[in-house]
Every structure is written in C-alpha cells, then in structure tokens.
Design a protein around this nucleic acid. Structure first.
Lengths: 317, 317
DNA sequence: TTGAAAGCGGTACCAC
DNA sequence: GTGGTACCGCTTTCAA
C-alpha cells in the first residue's frame, strides 16, 4: 500500500533511524490510515524474539505476589515486553506442566517464584537458553539469576527480636508453604540457641487468610494457654490472629504479641497495627525486570540480589 | 527424527485421534527422548489461533481484579490458553495504547474491565474479529459480550438499605474511579427520592487504600460532625474508615454505620466486621472464560450476563 | 537508504 | 492414515 518493500515497513516500525525521514513519514501515514497492526507472532517467529516474558507465581489473588508481578509487568511493558501469566497454585505442583506449556510460547525470559524446581524444569529452563530470574528466596546456586532474601534469616531475626523483648512462650500460626517452612526452621533454631524451646505450632493450608488465622490462634490457645507471642507466616494470617485475640478479649500486645510477615498494604495503617516483616515486593518485580532487560541488552547484572528485609515494630509487639 | 512427516508430528500432538496408535507411540517416544518443545508462535502464525487471551485490568495489586484474572487464567489454562496481562492503571488512560500493542500479539479473545472505551479501541476490537468480554459493569450495547452488574443499582440499593435502617446523615468516602461515580449517582438519586439530600462526599484518588480511607473519614467528620452512616467506594477505604472511627472512639455501628463495597477476602472475617456489597469476583473470571470458550467452539453463550450483587449485613450497620 | 530472496517452524489443503 | 506443497507475516542476510 505504501509502495515500498515489506522490509522498509518493518524498519519504519522497529528501527526508524534506518529510514529516510520522508519514507518514514509516508509509511507512518499509510499505517495510520489503513489500521495496520503488525503481527508480532510472525515477527517473533522470524526474529526469534517473542518479546514475551513468562511469570510463574503460585497465585495473584489477595497476595504478596500480585504486586511483584505488577511491577514486573509495568517495567517490562515500558520496554515493549508483555507478560504471560502462569499460576502454579499451592503447592506448586503444576509448575512443571506450566513451564512446559509456557516455554512453547518461546518467552524471552522467565520469572519464577522460589528456588526449588524439578530436575526436568531446570533442564528445560537451561535448554531454553534465556534469562531466568528466581525470586522470593536465596540460594548460592540459582539456575541463572536471582532476586530474593533469606527466609532463614527472617526466621532467626524474628525469634531474636521476640526473645529480646522478653517473650518466652512462643507460637507459630503457619501455612504449609515451602518458604514458610524455612522461616520456621530459622525461627526454631535461633530460639533454641537462646534456650527457648517448646514452640507451639498450628499448621494451616496455604495460602493463609484471615479466617484461617483465627482458627490457628484458637487451636494454639486451646492447646497451650500460656502463649505470649505469636509469629504468623503471613500478614493475612496475622490479621486473623489479631481478630481472634480481640474477640477473646486479649490485649495486644499486652497479653499477646503478634508478628506478621510480608507487610501487606492494609497492615501499615491498621490500628492497633500489626508488627511485621517488611519485604519490598515492588523491588522484586522491578529488579527482576531490570535483570532481564540488562541481559537482553547484553549488559551485565548481578547474578544474585539480596533485597533483605526489615522488622517493622508497631503496637502489637 | 521420528522418520515421519512434520505434519504427522503436528497431528500426534494436536489431534492424536487422527494418528495410528503405533505411529503415535513412536512419535511420542521420540518427542520425550529429544526434548522437543513445539513452537506455538509458529503454530499460531500458521493456524491463525494463538491460544492467547489478553486481559486488560487497571491493576492486580491488592485489588478486586486479581481474583477475576486468576479465575480466568485457571479456566482458560485448562483449555490450553494462556493469559497475556495488560495493566492499564488508574485512570485507564493507557488502555488505548495497551490494546494496540496487545492486539499485535493476535490474542484469540480479549477480557476488558469496564464498558467505556475510546472509539479507536472499539474500532480496533471490532476489526480484530475476536470474542471480546467487557466486565464489571452493565450496558445494553456491549462491543461483543459482557459479564457484569449494575453499579447504579448498587448505589440505589445501598441508599435504600441505609435509609430503611433509619440513617439520614449520609456520607461517601469515594475514590475517583469511573464505575464508582456511577454508584454514587445511583446512591444520590435514590436518597433524593427518599428525601435525603445534603450528602457529604470526600473524594480520594483511586485505587483506595486503608490510609486514604482514614483521611476520608477525617475530612468528612471535620466538615460535618453529624454523620451517622458512611458508604465507601471500596472495602479498602471502608477498612480505613473503620480504623479512623475506632481511633476517634466512635462506636460502630452505634455512632457511625459503615458500608463497604467489593467484599474483599479480609472483610468477611474481621471483627467487628464491615457490612459490604458482595460482588462475586470469581464468577466474573469464570463466566468470561466460559463465554470465550463457547465462542471458540462455536457454541452459543448469553450476550449479557448480569451476575448481580448482594448487600452483606454485619455488625457495622 | 532500500530491496530481493530465503526462511523462521509450524499447519491447511488436498492427493495418495 | 500419511505425506507433499504451499504459505502464515515477518526479519535476516546480502546485494544494489
């Protein structure tokens, strides 16, 4: 329609600096007039760059992962990439199958949640020869790149924090999630080193929610009445624990201290508020995007980024 | 590698019923052994079916949209489709641009939030000739299909509900969001019909959160002390209003009744809990998926699905 | 700066 | 039931 070769249109769109100003204007005018929409499937096939990034997360509903995915999507979108969403569920049993189907879309990079993946998945990821960013956890041997923090350190830090404050009768209201299990181990190890053992635990199905939190505390209190501090594997559970404590007339933190995890948006402004472990979820998405973009542009990027965490003290501990 | 024509491999994967059992087994064995991963970009280009569905939502972080997208993704995933995420932000100013870039991926269907789209977007959508599902709202003239509910009716229902309960000094803590504006109009119209005017309004930026909710109630109370019921444009804001009310020593619902909107997961179990308008977010995602799948299979599906809503009464009204 | 030809990796169509 | 051939719509490569 524009009276030029297809390749000139391609260049006008993708590398306008290679085209004369006049040709460029003309092609653009025809594009606008004709309503031409380039077919990126075809483009991806020919160029072997799909400009698609797969994000595999357990869930995005009411969850700490949503915000990371949101940041990832935003940042990648600026650079012309779109995010393919893969929800692996809890437990991440669907990850293998999901990864296989997602890789057949030929994404240019993959964002993964967690660091434990089946040998088949690792193999497939390696074979794809694309940037892979594992997140939400730390390991010295990532598949490729990693943006996360140490769950063991979180557990240890919270145990020491609570013990420093004088609490000795500790309880956990805990979702049966892989990374939470590592936090628990860190917590129990550090507590044991300080001479605090006999930690009560209520295990609940993941993902946690307010109702499960209430049930968790109820179970804990029915079994052991002398609890003075509870650490929860998520803020959602902590909200439930707080609710149950209030319903039972317990003063927080007077009778019972409560610590959450994740620092979900609703937490910081609640009154009386929950103490929690702040994780910079936006940083996980953003840094993952930057890591991928760096690799796309052959620029160097740190292999492992530890974004750390922070204990946020509020009225409840 | 299998000693058969490419098309036979294609059939073994996509239409195994057309291939002899022996050939099928052999091809499958070779596929497993070689680690062959089909290229769906190429397949999509050739077949003109990308098996991609675009979902355009304002945001997925801490939001009512995340759950709908989750259900959509799950249901479509079962059928071999993947979801391309498009985040249009608040206000949906990026929708046009987003839609253009997303359509160049040749999705087989599009999930949209809301019913107001620019003429260019409507045009592009129509030109794509694919199923389009608009959601979260109602109109007699959708682009194609629609799964939603009437925001005007929600507003009217809440006004009548509060007035029936004897509240006369009404306030709104409201995010500046398009659909919320329609609920507000319905609320004010119905209230006016019952003789209740002079409704105080605090307008806040979207999306609402707990902190903004606190600020909203503070503003309302500072301007008009005689408030006896507040309707919030989201549960997140309502949580903030509740928090601020408690901080000021107001009894809820004795001194101040509070009504939220959306029925976010944290709300149902909070104690004392918020009354709210329950929207079946999962149904929006699921029914949208079903609508698309029906159209893919040339099966009929209702053009417009009104999922309705429900006022959930709890301690706070 | 622009274009011709080839091909990316599959699937549609029709013959065998 | 299986295969040959053409072609999906774009980008690569190399030549002009």
């Amino acid at each position: 329609m524009a009276g030029v070769a297809p390749i000139t249109v391609s260049r006008a769109i993708n590398r306008p600096e290679l085209v004369t100003k006049d040709t460029l204007e003309h092609v653009r005018e025809v594009i606008a007039r004709s309503g031409y929409v380039p077919n990126l499937l075809a483009g991806g096939l020919a160029s072997k760059r799909s400009r698609l990034v797969a994000a595999i997360v357990p869930t995005i509903g009411n969850s700490i992962f949503a915000e990371a995915v949101e940041c990832l999507t935003d940042r990648l979108g600026e650079a012309g990439y779109k995010v393919l969403l893969g929800l692996s569920g809890y437990p991440a049993s669907r990850e293998d199958e999901l990864l296989a189907t997602v890789l057949s879309r030929r994404p240019d990079a993959v964002f993964l949640t967690g660091i434990t993946h089946s040998p088949e998945s690792r193999q497939r990821l390696l074979a794809a020869k694309i940037p892979v960013v594992e997140t939400w956890d730390l390991t010295p041997t990532p598949i490729d790149m990693l943006v996360g923090f140490s769950h063991e350190k979180v557990g240890r830090a919270v145990a020491n924090y609570l013990i420093d404050k004088g609490y000795r009768h500790l309880g956990l209201v805990w979702a049966s999630d892989e990374r939470a299990a590592i936090r628990r181990r860190g917590f129990e190890d550090a507590a044991a080193e300080r001479g605090v053992t006999d930690i009560k635990v209520a295990i609940l199905p993941a993902p946690g929610n307010l109702k499960l939190g209430r049930e968790g505390l109820a179970k804990l209190l029915d079994e052991a009445g002398d609890l003075d501090a509870v650490f929860c594997s998520s803020d959602a559970l902590a909200q439930g624990v707080l609710t149950e404590a209030q319903a039972r007339g317990l003063a927080v933190p007077g009778d019972l201290a409560i610590m959450g995890f994740g620092d979900l948006e609703f937490a910081p402004y609640t009154y009386p508020s929950l103490s929690t472990v702040r994780i910079d979820r936006r940083a996980i998405g953003l840094l993952s995007a930057e890591a991928m973009l760096a690799r796309f542009g052959d620029r160097p990027f740190e292999k492992i980024v530890d974004i750390g965490f922070e204990i946020v003290e509020r009225a409840s501990t």
